[in-house]
Simulated assay, not measured.
Amino acid sequence: MENLSRFRTFLHKNKGTIGLLILCITLIWGYAWILMKEALNYMGPFTFSAFRFGTGTLTMLVVLSVMKIGLPPKDKWGHLLVAGILQTSIVFLFVMYGLRFVDAGKSSVLLYSMPIWSSLLATKFLQERIPRMKMIGLGIGLLGLLTILGWDIWMNQNSRIIFGELLIVVAAISWGASNVYYRLKLLDVSQLQVNTYQMLFGTLGIIIASFMVEGGDPVHLTGESIYYVLFTGVLASALCFTVWFFLLSIIDMVTATISTLLVPVFGMFFGWLLLDEHLTPSIIIGSFLILIGIFIANIAKKKA
């Protein structure tokens, strides 16, 4: 714990290091979308999610053990179960299944519309008032979402792609709901405990789904597929979130939220670079609208 305190002091004095860490985290998360897409060549989407978050959960339990952080309060276990279902089970079951039909770059943009849904749900359940500029930002973000979805509905008319996109939008809404639920029920629990145990409960839900849906499907464990599991489980899920929650104790939430907008940008770039995914005008225009909308909404929140 003393080393963590020293590291926190170092970061306070070296703001450039904070920016570098944020850049590395969002770069890893953006690249992880490509690995999630490629992993479908070796196993079913639910099975991969079970491997990924099972590995991530074990890593987080080791982190808590090393940091000598005990169990969360008993009265919070039920809330952690709900958070795990919303944050891990629903989000990544729907995202991984949607990736069977939707490009990795477009999927990352749709999922990172999450701040829009978080804000809308917060007005309902947290009684947060939306300032005028924030409402404008949310409207622009929703317009961007409709630009991406609408093009496929009216021009491509591929029911499989539309179905996959809708699954990922539902995942984004579930992610937003988990953020609101966290603020309602788990705000007084250590963020590392929340991340570890919601992931634990969420992983159990994913394992059950994988046995029910893909129990007899083949799993090809090769050097490449194991790399996908370890990278997304240990690095992208466990370690990056550990560093991320640590940074959240140093930087303000608005800066953190705005910085996550780099993830879909990197996701689209790697999709184009490594998977030869096409960046259509609707994806580019819609993506910029979503990013601009979320940026305006967060600037309005900061001013408020």
Rank of each mutant, 00 (worst) to 15 (best):
residue 97 Y to C: 05
residue 109 V to Q: 08
residue 128 E to Q: 05
residue 282 S to Y: 13
residue 302 K to Y: 04
residue 303 K to D: 04
residue 283 I to S: 00
residue 192 L to Y: 06
residue 130 I to E: 08
residue 211 F to M: 12
residue 189 V to A: 03
residue 144 G to H: 09
residue 299 I to L: 14
residue 74 K to G: 00
residue 142 L to E: 01
residue 102 V to E: 08
residue 51 F to V: 03
residue 281 P to M: 03
residue 84 G to E: 00
residue 128 E to W: 10
residue 161 I to V: 09
residue 199 M to T: 09
residue 179 N to D: 14
residue 128 E to A: 01
residue 119 S to V: 08
residue 192 L to G: 05
residue 281 P to T: 09
residue 10 F to D: 13
residue 104 A to S: 13
residue 99 L to I: 08
residue 260 T to G: 04
residue 15 K to A: 01
residue 278 H to N: 10
residue 221 L to F: 12
residue 159 S to R: 13
residue 107 S to L: 10
residue 202 G to C: 00
residue 96 M to F: 15
residue 59 T to I: 02
residue 34 I to C: 10
residue 136 I to Y: 14
residue 83 A to S: 05
residue 227 Y to D: 00
residue 169 V to P: 05
residue 91 V to T: 12
residue 271 G to K: 12
residue 241 F to R: 05
residue 282 S to R: 03
residue 271 G to E: 05
residue 303 K to S: 06
residue 237 S to P: 15
residue 262 L to A: 14
residue 172 A to F: 09
residue 234 V to H: 03
residue 264 P to E: 02
residue 269 F to D: 09
residue 82 V to G: 02
residue 36 M to N: 10
residue 222 T to S: 09
residue 268 M to I: 08
residue 234 V to S: 13
residue 31 Y to S: 07
residue 140 I to N: 11
residue 227 Y to R: 01
residue 261 L to F: 08
residue 225 S to C: 06
residue 37 K to I: 01
residue 131 P to T: 02
residue 47 T to A: 11
residue 138 L to D: 03
residue 129 R to I: 14
residue 114 M to N: 14
residue 31 Y to Q: 09
residue 298 N to L: 03
residue 219 V to H: 15
residue 1 M to F: 08
residue 225 S to R: 13
residue 191 Q to W: 00
residue 278 H to I: 13
residue 83 A to L: 09
residue 121 L to E: 02
residue 285 I to L: 02
residue 279 L to E: 01
residue 27 L to N: 11
residue 217 D to K: 15
residue 269 F to I: 12
residue 127 Q to L: 04
residue 98 G to W: 01
residue 51 F to C: 05
residue 275 L to A: 05
residue 297 A to T: 03
residue 243 V to D: 04
residue 205 G to A: 02
residue 163 F to C: 13
residue 254 V to D: 06
residue 110 L to K: 10
residue 190 S to G: 08
residue 44 G to V: 02
residue 192 L to S: 06
residue 116 I to N: 04
residue 204 L to Y: 10
residue 4 L to R: 15
residue 159 S to E: 15
residue 267 G to N: 05
residue 152 D to S: 15
residue 6 R to L: 10
residue 191 Q to K: 15
residue 74 K to Y: 05
residue 160 R to T: 12
residue 260 T to M: 12
residue 92 F to Q: 07
residue 100 R to C: 04
residue 147 T to S: 10
residue 104 A to G: 05
residue 74 K to C: 00
residue 302 K to A: 03
residue 273 L to P: 15
residue 27 L to S: 07
residue 155 M to N: 14
residue 199 M to A: 12
residue 238 A to N: 07
residue 43 M to Q: 03
residue 218 P to T: 00
residue 236 A to D: 01
residue 252 D to A: 05
residue 91 V to P: 12
residue 50 A to N: 02
residue 212 M to K: 09
residue 240 C to I: 08
residue 68 K to M: 11
residue 154 W to C: 07
residue 105 G to E: 06
residue 63 V to I: 13
residue 217 D to F: 01
residue 11 L to P: 10
residue 87 Q to M: 15
residue 68 K to R: 13
residue 188 D to Y: 15
residue 25 I to N: 06
residue 286 G to R: 10
residue 229 V to T: 07
residue 44 G to W: 05
residue 60 M to I: 11
